[in-house]
Design a protein around this nucleic acid. Structure first.
Length: 999
RNA sequence: AGGCGCGUAGCUCAGAUGGCAGAGCGCCGCCCUUACAAGGCGGAGGUCGGCGGUUCGAGUCCGCCCGUGCCUACCA
């Protein structure tokens, strides 16, 4: 007997969100058993989580909690992504709002600002994840820019470089003139736009006429160095080899190789020109168009850049210099028109590439960049094989096709970015011999040299540093784990080998006093350190591996953020160190992510994973849908249609949020979300709570001791046990197939429609039973009955809570802890219910289902007759097969159909109205004010329906082909169904006649 | 331009292996029946986008079309 009162999701959830983290429930210490490991797709530190993250986290948590309850040692690694451009963009905008320009601030100062921002975002996200109840192991939290991870990135870069898989070169890339960086092909968003196609006449040099070219970008004509036609194009065959005078350009232009280029340009033939497009003649601007770049290369054409990094016209643009590309376009078109060289302008739909971050139209731009040869068989073949052979499994399956398609058409990946926030490429160019040096800490023997190298490469200390600076830094709290020092963190995540032996505070002190003794350094030419006696600072010296020069210049570019993300599933476990974690927990078992980053991330993890670890990074890849708003629009801040998960958690609770997301997650389908959905499942949580409240209110304190004195189970007990058992089976099956929606629906259906609607109602018969006499035997019997009802309620409810726990962790925890059977620190540490074939009671199941039908049919009649629920009425019945059942379940029918009495009669009582359910026919005495019309129309509708069904069955059975060809079983089934319908029709007809007479 | 997905009740969506169309929300009616009005009980509502084909039988399999969403792509 205890009352848990009304459901207050905030109270419950806030309590456990904190408690679970404090008690470190989800940190596995002993990893000797069967493991289940997952790495979270690290959220970007760009702000806070959106609904997509909430979905992602929820689905992973459902699986992780389920696996944990199945007895596995679940390790779920959380973390964050530094998210290069995205984060830089966010901080840049914040500064702009304060009127600060990033370029004025300079790299170092700007990075400081970013490091100030990151913890703000990270804490917000952490808090959100905790509120969602995710069971990650916070002790393992990682950041893609933390010390260990950065080291892994450098290691990976070096390996790839040494294997010849990374190269540097001058190529055409997509350039964002706003973010001032190159982007990979994937970061280009193509958008269809209504543009214009300009037809421009280029006069032939000999004055014999002109050739007309068509272009969408007239401003690039200033950089034209040829006109190309298809070699087989009869219209232009005679012109090939001739030259044209480039209009407007009356000056010499400077090509990228420094040579001067005349505005007289050749007409060349190239098969890549499509004769059917435009005029069939195309202007060639090798420095500003990808195809022209290729053609320029093959034909040895000069490359003339006419724009700078801001997409402004440069010195090659003569009078147009300094104009923005679009202004230049306008001016150039005007000029051409004046000169009569603009033949016509057509409207033209075409795709333009935009920056995926800032949506600026990108400029094809020739520049020197770093590339990763992902198309190399050493990388690609494995990545294809592991998916083809099913070692990695996509769910839903069709994504593997998309993955493979993309893999087949791989192009080299531009991995360098001209931004500041990210992993600086670990390359130092020699100013003397020009050698490209790639350094990692492997190049140094002593641990402290390694350490200091890493600090420098990370930009954690400046080129010149004092020992105090280094010591302070190493003794300061780690960015990721404030309870550790930076040095601890290094030891833990990066210097596995040296763990607790060589690296400690004492040796650190010794290192600085002995090894970095200024006198020793000044006299020791080969020292790694240079001492500056004036400033009392040290410099860590790198020497060119080829010529030994100390004059090295570090590459200023940083790596594409996805380069580091690609190492995530093994980097988090300490790779490249051969840690125990790596051996035990890698490959991971599951990756849950959205389809929008299959190419960006999933594919690259597979490529890097198989390349570096010779193993797959994960076994199952569950691809979930994208969250959209109720109109099917992508949620975005600019559209203002975002639903903030924290708002929902506040208003409806994390449990409701999670359950909603789970039940809406049908495989491979986008989720349209409106706030209304959450409300419905909050009601579900409330329903569950109230069921718990009811049970607790009705449990006797001494129940657990009295269990042996309980009466044997009744059919409804066996029925609900069977129903629960079937639900257990279905939920486990659904989860094993990642059918979240199916699992959630089964739970909802069972809890609400079976347990609450029927079983609890049935149980009240025994719980509320009062002895009719003073007979002590009867009292004893009633008590025994009550015990058995309580026991079943408790047992079924307890199992149900465990079954539901992965979906709604908070409320299930709270209710479970309130049960007298609670015996564990947390419900999440108990076992997940499993199907038990012994607990299927078909006989009882059938009986109770039939009784439900009978009760419903009585309720239906009552409702049609407008008899209020509170009025207990007398009912009379006739029945054949159902008779014994009705007698057996008399109390149930009386109670749930709210009857005063139910008596068997031989004939329909006079002046009565009738209803039926199969052979069970029942009668209510008609009163003066009874409403028959509703009933008559109800029966009429029913009759029509039955007759319609009969017709289709009769037609089918009179079809010879059906009888001949359909399976015997099917024919039989149809016949039986028809017989049943016939009986029903007769009954309805009879009842209708009665009603009409009574009218 | 290719590829993928979707079109079923007013809305959001379920409907292995073809065999009497389902749920939630919304709507209508009656009820504060001592777990729950965030509730109970009862009910209405659908030519399964269109056309053709395979089949005894098609929401389900095949073809075409229409609508819609997304991904990929160097048509200047």
């Amino acid at each position: 007997m205890k009352d848990i009162g009304q459901y207050d999701h905030k109270k419950v959830e806030e309590k456990y969100a904190k408690l679970w983290v404090e008690r470190v429930l989800y940190s596995v210490k002993d990893t000797s058993g069967e493991k289940f490991s997952v790495v979270i797709p690290p959220p970007n530190v760009t702000g806070s989580l959106h609904m997509g993250h909430a979905l992602n986290a929820t689905l992973q948590d459902i699986i992780c909690r389920w696996q944990r309850m199945l007895g596995k040692e679940v390790v779920w690694v959380p973390g964050f992504d530094h998210a290069g451009i995205a984060t830089q963009y966010v901080v840049d905008r914040q500064l702009q709002e304060k009127g600060i320009n990033r370029l004025d601030l300079g790299r170092e100062e700007f990075l400081k600002k970013v490091w100030e921002w990151v913890p703000i975002s990270r804490n917000a996200i952490r808090e959100q994840l905790e509120r969602l109840g995710v069971s990650v192991d916070w002790k393992r939290e990682r950041f893609t820019l933390d010390e260990g991870f950065s080291r892994a990135v450098r290691y990976a870069f070096r390996r790839l470089y040494e294997e010849g898989l990374i190269y540097r070169g001058e190529y055409m890339v997509s350039w964002c003139p706003k973010d001032l960086t190159a982007l990979s092909d994937l970061e280009v968003e193509h958008e269809e736009e209504e543009g214009k196609l300009y037809y421009i006449r280029y006069p032939l040099e000999d004055g014999s006429g002109y050739i007309t070219v068509a272009t969408t970008r007239p401003e690039t004509m200033l950089g034209d160095t040829a006109v190309a036609v298809h070699p087989e194009d009869e219209r232009y065959k005679s012109l090939v080899g001739k030259r044209v005078r480039l209009p407007l350009v009356e000056w010499k232009r400077k090509a990228m190789d420094g040579s001067e280029v005349e505005p007289i340009i050749p007409i060349i033939a190239d098969e890549r020109v499509k004769p059917e497009f435009g005029t069939g003649a195309v202007k060639i601007t090798p420095a500003h168009d990808p195809l022209d770049f290729e053609i320029g290369k093959t034909h040895g054409l000069p490359f003339v850049q006419v724009m700078d990094q801001f997409a402004r016209m440069n010195h090659n643009a003569g009078q147009f210099e300094g104009l923005d590309r679009y202004e230049a376009r306008k001016k150039i078109v005007e000029r051409l028109e004046e000169l009569g060289l603009l033949e016509k302008v057509e409207s033209h739909r075409h795709a333009v590439g935009k920056c995926y971050r800032c949506k600026t139209v990108l400029e094809p731009f020739v520049s020197t960049q770093w590339f990763l040869k992902v198309s190399d068989p050493r990388i690609r073949d494995q990545a294809i094989r592991v998916v083809k052979e099913g070692l990695i499994r996509f769910i839903p399956e069709n994504w593997s096709k998309i993955y493979l398609q993309w893999m087949e058409n791989l192009k080299d990946w531009c991995i360098s970015r001209q931004i500041w926030w990210g992993h600086r490429i670990p390359v130092w160019y020699c100013e003397d011999c020009g050698h490209t040096n790639v350094f990692t800490d492997e190049d140094f023997d002593r641990v402290y040299d390694k350490l200091i190298f890493n600090l420098i490469a990370d930009g954690k200390i400046g080129e010149e540093f004092t020992p105090e600076e280094v010591a302070d830094l190493l003794n300061s709290p780690s960015f990721v784990h404030p309870e550790m020092t930076l040095l601890d963190f290094y030891k833990h995540f990066a210097f596995h080998k040296y763990h607790s032996t060589e690296v400690d505070a004492n040796s650190l002190r010794l290192f600085f006093t002995q090894d970095l003794n200024p006198m020793a350094i000044l006299t020791e030419k080969k020292s790694r350190y240079r001492y500056n006696p004036q400033k009392k600072t040290y410099r860590f010296v790198l020497r060119c591996k080829k010529c030994g020069s100390e004059r090295l210049r570090q590459e200023t570019d940083v790596l594409d953020t996805w380069f580091s993300s690609a190492l995530w599933p093994f980097g988090v476990f300490g790779w490249p160190e051969a840690t125990q974690d790596l051996q035990k927990l890698y490959p991971t078992d599951l990756l849950v992510t959205g389809f929008d980053i299959i190419f960006f991330w999933v594919a690259r993890m597979v490529m890097m994973g198989t390349f570096f670890t010779k193993d797959i990074p994960f076994k199952d890849v569950y691809i979930h849908a994208l969250i959209r708003d109720e109109k099917g629009q992508k949620m975005s801040k600019t559209k203002g249609n975002v639903i903030d998960p924290l708002d929902i958690v506040e208003k409806y609770g994390a449990d409701a949020l999670r359950f909603t997301l789970a039940i809406l997650t049908q495989q491979g389908r986008d989720i349209r979300l409106s706030e209304k959905r959450f409300e419905g499942y909050k009601h579900f949580a409330n329903k569950l709570w109230n069921a718990g409240r009811f049970i607790l209110l009705n449990l006797d304190e001494d129940l657990l001791y009295n269990l042996p004195y309980g009466a044997p189970p009744r059919p409804e007990d066996l029925w609900i046990i069977t129903k629960l058992n079937r639900t257990i089976e279905r939920v486990n099956k659904a989860l094993s197939e990642y059918e979240f929606s199916e699992a959630a629906r089964e739970l909802y259906e069972f809890i609400w429609s079976e347990f609450c609607d029927w079983y609890i109602e049935f149980s009240k018969i025994r719980l509320y039973a009062k002895p009719q006499s003073e007979d002590p035997e009867e009292e004893k019997r009633i008590k025994a009955e009550r015990i058995s009802a309580q026991a079943t309620l408790l047992m079924v409810f307890e199992k149900t809570l465990r079954l539901l726990h992965p979906f709604m962790p908070f409320i299930t925890e709270e209710l479970w802890q309130a049960l007298p059977t609670a015996h564990q620190e947390s419900i999440s540490l108990t076992q997940y219910p499993q199907f038990n074939p012994q607990e299927i009671y078909e006989e009882a199941e059938k009986k109770v289902e039939r009784i439900k039908e009978i009760i419903s049919s009585i309720r239906s009649l009552r409702s049609d007759l407008r008899i209020e629920p509170s009025r207990r009425i007398k009912l009379y019945y006739r029945a054949e097969e159902s008779k014994s059942l009705v007698e057996e379940f008399m109390p149930h029918i009386l109670s749930l159909a709210r009857l005063e009495s139910l008596e068997e009669v031989a004939e329909r009582p006079p002046r009565s109205v009738a209803g039926f359910s199969k052979d069970f026919e029942f009668y209510v005495l008609a009163e003066e004010n009874i409403n028959l019309e509703e009933l008559i129309s109800s029966y009429s509708r029913r009759l029509a329906e039955v007759e319609r069904s009969m017709e289709t069955f009769e037609k089918r059975l009179s079809n010879e082909n059906f009888l001949k060809k359909a399976p015997e079983e099917e024919v039989q089934r149809t016949k039986e169904a028809l017989e049943e319908l016939k009986g029903e029709r007769e009954r309805i007809q009879r009842l209708l006649t009665i009603l009409q007479e009574a009218r």
